[in-house]
Amino acid sequence: MELNEITYTDAVPFDSYGPGFFRVAGHVIEGPALVTLTSARSWGGFEDLAALEALAGEVDVIFLGMGPEIAHAPAALRTRIETLGIGLEVMASPAACRTYNVLASEGRRIAAAVMPV
């Protein structure tokens, strides 16, 4: 098996996560986080649709991390994001972080909106 190290030329990667926080590109974000290829910031959670709506035209898919376990996305959030033409992939936050990192290394137009574990 061949192993290849992932490199991030311009992307902002998840470095790690833990109880209540995410470390992104060397900076700690307490609580929910919204990460794109160019920025990482605190996010207001599922009710903060404005932050996700602002990604229209910038991203094709948002990975929605629901916390330690997978759960259904709130219906209003799913409907609004899909209405904007953005794909929504719902998964546990650890899986969202890993998936984001792999696709970010490829330069894909993605974002991750994640709840802490």
Rank of each mutant, 00 (worst) to 15 (best):
V35S: 03
N4A: 10
D10P: 00
P32E: 02
D48P: 10
F63R: 06
D10E: 14
Y17I: 05
D48C: 09
E30A: 13
D48I: 12
I62N: 02
E58H: 11
E58S: 15
A11G: 14
G57A: 01
A40G: 14
R23K: 15
G57M: 03
F14V: 07
D15H: 14
S42H: 12
G45M: 12
L37W: 00
F63L: 13
G20Y: 07
T36V: 04
D48Q: 08
E47V: 10
V35Y: 03
P13T: 09
E58T: 14
T38W: 01
T9E: 11
I62R: 05
D10H: 14
F21N: 02
H27P: 00
V24N: 10
E58M: 11
F46I: 04
A40T: 05
F21G: 03
A56E: 15
P13M: 09
D15A: 12
H27G: 02
F22G: 08
L37K: 00
P19D: 15
F21S: 03
D60V: 01
A40P: 00
V28N: 11
A51T: 13
G57P: 09
G26F: 08
P19S: 10
T38L: 00
L34Y: 04
E5Q: 11
L49A: 10
D60P: 02
F21E: 06
S42F: 01
F14M: 05
T7S: 14
E5W: 01
S16H: 10
G18C: 12
F63I: 03
E53R: 12
P13C: 12
L49R: 12
S39V: 02
F14Y: 13
A33C: 06
R41E: 15
S16R: 12
D10I: 01
H27T: 14
T38I: 00
R23Y: 01
T9Y: 09
